[in-house]
Design a protein around this nucleic acid. Structure first.
Length: 820
DNA sequence: TGCTAGTATATTTTT
DNA sequence: TATACTAGCA
C-alpha cells in the first residue's frame, strides 16, 4: 500500500495497542510489509532505502526527485519530524512550503502525530500564505499597513480595465487580459515598472504606453494599500533585499527550509528561497551576539515530469539545475511507486517517455499488474458523461465509495455535460474549483464591505460597494469622488466623508454620507483601542448587511437567481462563524486573508461521500482509487491554445501523465466523437497521447476506431496524419494483429452500448409517481422496469432495469421518462 | 440614473 | 452557450 494513503487513513493517533511506541502512528510499517522488528527508528519504519536517505540525510541542500506516488509526502513529513525529534531543530526553525493550504494542514497534523504532540511554531504553508504572514508583520517598513488587501486576478483586471480606459489605451490595441498577463509575467520575473522601463524601447509608443499603464497600476495598488497575487511573493523578495535586517531576522529564524512541488516554482519563488537560505554574515545585525551563520539547509522535492504550471511562470530549470545552483547538493531518487498498479504505471511511463530532454525515469511497483485501463468513446460529451456515470454506479455497487472516485478534465467548461448527467443519474458529486464560491459577484460584494472596513485605503472595494445595493449613485458620481480624492490628495473614503463639498444632489450626497458613516462605525468596532470587547467577524458582517440593506435588496429582486444569491450571502455569514470557531482570536484581516488564499484543492472534503470533479491541474498531488480522465481529445488534451506555445505539447503530455498517475486501481480514459463548444458541436479527434499507451493495456469498451467506422460511409482517418502504422492502436507493426483483434472484440459490444446515447434535455416530471414493477420508457435508454424507488421529494431516485441499456439510476423529477 | 434588450465576443490551466 | 458590454429609452 501506499504510505501516503496509509497516513491519510489514520491521521489520529491510534488509541489502543502499541502505546509504548507512540511514534508509529502512520501505520507504514504494516502498510507495505517493511522491515520487521529491531530497535530501529520508528520514523524509518517501512521505508525503502532511498526514502530513508531522504529522511536522514543532513547537509546544506537535498534534492528529492520523487516520481508520482513514491511516498514523498510521507518522506517530507518524517524528515521534519526527524529534525524535531532528534532536537536538531526547534519547530519554530522549520519552514515548509506546500502547494495547497490543505496539504499544509495535513502535513502539520501528520508531523504532530509522528511526534506525539502538536509542534507549535512550525511554519507549514503555501508560498503565498507564508509571504502574507511576513508582509503583514513588516508592511509598515515600506508604506503599507498590516491590514493590506490582497487583490485576486479579478480585482487586478478591474483596476487595469479602469487604467486602460483612462489612458484610452484600448485604441492602441491593449486588452485587459493582455496587460494583466504581461504584468503578471513581469512580476514573476521580479521586474517592476521602473526596472522594465529601463529596458523598454521608448521609441515604440506602445511600449511607452505599457510602461505608463504598469506605473499607474503599481501606484493604484500602493495607494489602495493592496498587493496583487504576484506581489505577495515579489514584494517579499523586495523587502528582504531592501531591508537586510528584516531578511536577517528570517534567515536566523528558519534553519530548515523544505519546499514541495519544487518543479512548479517560478523565478520569484526561487529568489525568495535563495534569499532565505543565504548565510548570515558576521556583524550584519544590530544584535550584539550576531555571530555569523551558514545558510539554512534546504530540501526540495519535485518531479520535472509533473511540471504543469509553466503558464504562470513556473520554471522547470529550478529543479533541473538545482545541483548547479546549490553546489554540494545531494540528490535522492524515489522511483518505487506505492500508489498504482503496474498497468497504470506502464501506461504513464510510456506516455511520458515521449517527452525528450528529460532524465529517464521509470516508475515501478510490486503490487502487480492490476486491471486493464478502460477506454470508451462516446458519440457526444453527454454520451461520454453517461458512461462515466454508469461506471461510477457500478464501482459504487461493487464497494468503492464515491469519495474514492474522481473525474478529471482539461477545461472547466467540460463540467456542464458531466453535471447534467450526474444529477440525472443521481451520482453525488462535488466540483472543485471552477466558479468558486468566493468569486461569485454577491460574495465579492459582501467581501468588499468587509475589505472597506478593514482597509480604508482600498478604493477598489469602496467603488464596488458604492452603489451596491442601488443607492442612486451612478458612474458619474463615482468618478467625481475619485477626482476629488486625487486632486485633494485624500483617500477615497475621505472624499466620501466630505461629499458635501462636491456639490452633488442632496439625495446622492446623503446616500454617500450614510455609507461613509456605516463604514466608519464598523471600522471603529474593530479598533481595539476604542472598543473594549472583542468583535467577531460575523458581528461586523451582520451589521454591514443589516444597515446596507444588501440582503433585503437581493430578496426583493426579480431575478430568479437572486434568492440563490441571498442564500450564498447567508452561507458566507455561516462561514464567518465557522472561522471564528476555528480561530477564536481571529481578526477580520485574518478572515479576509484566509478567504483570499483558498485554492481549488482546499475545497476538498474527505468526509463528503461524493465523487470529486476537477481539472487536471487541480488534481496534482491527489490520488484516488478510481480515476476517470475525460475528454482525451485533440484540441482539448493537448488543448488547442497550447499547440502554438513553445513547450506546449510537452507540458500537456505531463498534464496527461499527472492525470494517469493519480489512479490507484482503476483508470478510465474517455473521449467523445463530437464535442459541444459554445453552442456549436464540433467533430473531435482522439488525442495523440492515446496512441502512446501500449494497446494491450487498454480494454476499449467502445474504441475510437469502432466509433468512427460505425458512422458508415468514410471512416474518419484517425491516424491519417500520424503514425503510418494504419490502425489506431498499432504503433509498431508487430502489433497490427492486436489492433485487429481488439476491433473484433469490440464489435459485438457496440449494440449493447448504443443506447448510451443521451440527448441533453431538461424536463420536469413534477410529481410523477413510480413504484417497483412499473414499466417506463426513457427517451435514450428505451423501455425498462422499475426495481426500486429511493429518496424523498424532488430527490427521488428510480432504480431501473432497462431492456437494452442495462440498469441505471434516474432522478425521477428530471429524467426524460414516462410511465407506460 | 437605471433598466432592458440587443449585440458582441470570447472561451486553458490558477495561487 | 453564457456572459459582458453598449446603446437607447424611461
Amino acid at each position: 500500500m501506499n504510505p501516503d494513503f496509509a497516513d491519510r487513513q489514520s491521521p489520529s493517533i491510534p488509541s489502543g495497542g502499541m502505546s509504548s511506541v507512540p511514534l508509529i502512528v502512520d501505520d507504514l510499517s504494516t502498510a507495505h510489509g517493511g522491515p520487521s522488528g529491531g530497535y530501529e527508528d520508528p520514523l524509518l519504519a517501512g521505508l525503502n532505502p532511498q526514502q530513508r536517505i531522504a529522511v536522514e540525510y543532513r547537509g546544506p541542500a537535498l534534492l528529492i526527485v520523487a516520481g508520482a506516488g513514491s511516498g514523498k509526502t510521507s518522506v517530507l513529513t518524517r524528515r521534519i519530524a526527524s529534525l524535531i525529534g532528534t532536537r536538531e531543530a526547534w519547530p519554530s526553525q522549520i519552514l515548509a512550503i506546500t502547494f495547497t493550504n490543505k496539504a499544509a494542514a495535513e502535513m502539520r497534523e501528520r508531523v504532530g502525530a509522528l511526534l506525539g504532540q502538536t509542534a507549535e511554531g512550525m511554519w507549514i504553508s503555501t508560498f503565498h500564505s507564508a509571504c502574507v504572514r511576513i508582509l503583514r508583520r513588516e508592511a509598515e517598513n515600506f508604506g503599507f499597513t498590516k491590514s493590506f488587501t490582497i487583490y485576486d486576478s479579478h480585482d487586478s483586471r478591474t483596476l487595469i480595465k479602469r487604467i486602460i480606459k483612462d489612458l484610452q489605451a484600448d485604441t492602441y490595441g491593449f486588452t485587459v487580459a493582455g496587460v494583466a498577463g504581461k504584468i503578471s509575467k513581469l512580476k514573476n520575473e521580479l521586474a517592476d515598472a521602473d526596472s522594465y522601463a529601463r529596458t523598454a524601447n521608448f521609441n515604440d509608443p506602445q511600449e511607452e504606453l505599457f510602461v505608463e499603464i504598469f506605473r499607474q497600476y503599481t501606484r493604484s495598488l500602493n495607494a489602495a494599500n493592496a498587493f496583487d497575487f504576484d506581489d505577495l511573493i515579489g514584494q517579499t523578495v523586495y523587502l528582504f533585499r531592501a531591508f537586510p535586517n528584516v531578511a536577517e531576522h528570517y534567515r536566523r529564524r528558519f534553519r530548515h527550509i523544505l519546499v514541495d512541488e519544487y518543479q512548479d516554482t517560478n523565478h520569484a519563488q526561487y529568489a525568495l528561497i535563495r534569499e532565505l537560505t543565504r548565510p548570515v554574515t558576521e556583524g550584519t545585525g544590530f544584535d550584539e551576539r550576531s555571530a555569523g551563520l551558514p545558510g539554512a539547509s534546504l530540501t526540495v522535492v519535485g518531479d520535472s515530469d509533473q511540471s504543469i504550471y509553466a503558464f504562470r511562470g513556473a520554471d522547470i530549470r529550478n529543479i533541473v539545475e538545482f545541483e548547479r545552483d546549490f553546489p554540494g547538493a545531494k540528490t535522492v531518487l524515489l522511483e518505487q511507486n506505492y500508489r498504482s498498479t503496474q498497468n497504470i504505471l506502464t501506461a504513464a511511463n510510456a506516455v511520458i517517455s515521449n517527452n525528450f530532454d528529460r532524465k529517464d525515469k521509470k516508475l515501478w511497483t510490486d503490487v502487480g499488474d492490476g486491471e486493464k485501463i478502460t477506454g470508451f468513446t462516446g458519440y457526444s460529451g453527454h454520451d461520454e458523461a453517461q458512461f462515466v456515470a454508469d461506471e461510477i454506479a457500478k464501482l459504487h455497487d461493487s464497494g468503492t465509495p464515491y469519495k474514492d472516485v474522481a473525474v478529471f478534465y482539461r477545461t472547466n467548461a467540460q463540467t456542464r455535460a458531466l453535471e447534467e448527467i450526474f444529477i440525472r443519474s443521481a451520482v453525488p458529486y462535488r466540483v472543485l474549483g471552477g466558479t468558486r464560491f468566493y468569486e461569485r459577484a454577491e460574495i465579492k460584494d459582501v467581501l468588499a464591505y468587509l475589505i472597506a472596513v478593514a482597509n480604508p485605503r482600498d478604493a477598489l472595494a469602496l467603488r464596488r460597494i458604492l452603489n451596491t445595493p442601488k443607492r442612486g449613485i451612478g458612474p458619474a458620481t463615482e468618478t467625481a469622488l475619485g477626482f476629488f480624492a486625487e486632486s485633494n490628495e485624500v483617500s477615497y473614503r475621505d472624499a466620501m466623508r466630505r461629499s458635501t463639498e462636491l456639490g452633488l444632489g442632496p439625495k446622492v450626497t446623503q446616500a454617500i454620507l450614510d455609507l461613509a458613516t456605516l463604514l466608519d462605525e464598523a471600522t471603529e468596532m474593530i479598533d481595539p483601542e476604542r472598543n473594549a470587547g472583542p468583535v467577531t467577524v460575523a458581528e461586523i458582517l451582520t451589521l454591514l448587511l443589516d444597515r446596507s440593506g444588501y440582503v433585503v435588496a437581493l430578496r426583493a429582486g426579480r431575478d430568479p437567481q437572486d434568492e440563490a444569491r441571498a442564500e450564498n450571502v447567508e452561507e458566507l455569514v455561516a462561514v464567518t462563524k465557522e472561522f471564528q470557531k476555528n480561530n477564536p482570536g481571529g481578526s477580520l484581516v485574518d478572515f479576509l486573508t484566509e478567504v483570499s488564499l483558498v485554492a481549488a484543492a482546499d475545497e476538498l472534503d474527505d468526509t463528503s461521500g461524493t465523487v470529486s470533479l476537477m481539472t487536471l491541474h487541480t488534481a496534482k498531488g491527489l490520488e484516488y482509487e478510481a480515476v476517470f480522465l475525460t475528454g482525451v481529445e485533440e484540441d482539448l488534451l493537448p488543448h488547442r491554445m497550447s499547440a502554438s506555445e513553445p513547450g506546449g505539447p510537452a507540458e500537456e503530455r505531463r498534464l496527461f501523465y499527472v492525470g494517469i498517475t493519480r489512479a490507484r486501481k482503476r483508470l478510465y480514459l474517455s473521449l467523445a466523437m463530437t464535442r459541444a463548444q459554445y453552442g456549436e458541436t464540433a467533430v473531435a479527434m482522439p488525442s495523440r497521447y492515446l496512441q502512446e499507451i501500449p494497446a494491450e493495456l487498454i480494454d476499449w469498451r467502445q474504441s475510437p476506431g469502432m466509433a468512427t467506422s460505425r458512422g458508415g460511409t468514410q471512416p474518419r482517418a484517425l491516424n491519417a496524419n500520424r503514425s503510418s502504422g494504419g490502425g489506431f492502436a498499432s504503433r509498431t507493426p508487430s502489433r497490427a494483429s492486436d489492433s485487429l483483434s481488439f476491433t473484433d472484440r469490440a464489435l459485438p459490444r457496440v449494440k449493447a452500448e448504443w443506447p448510451n446515447r443521451v440527448t441533453a434535455q431538461v424536463r420536469d416530471n413534477g410529481d410523477l409517481e413510480l413504484e417497483p414493477g412499473d414499466r417506463i420508457r426513457h427517451t435514450d435508454f428505451g423501455e425498462g422496469r422499475v426495481n426500486a424507488v429511493t429518496g424523498e421529494g424532488t430527490k427521488r431516485v428510480a432504480h431501473v432495469q432497462f431492456d437494452a441499456a442495462g440498469s441505471k439510476k434516474l432522478l425521477i423529477k428530471i429524467a426524460p421518462i414516462e410511465k407506460i
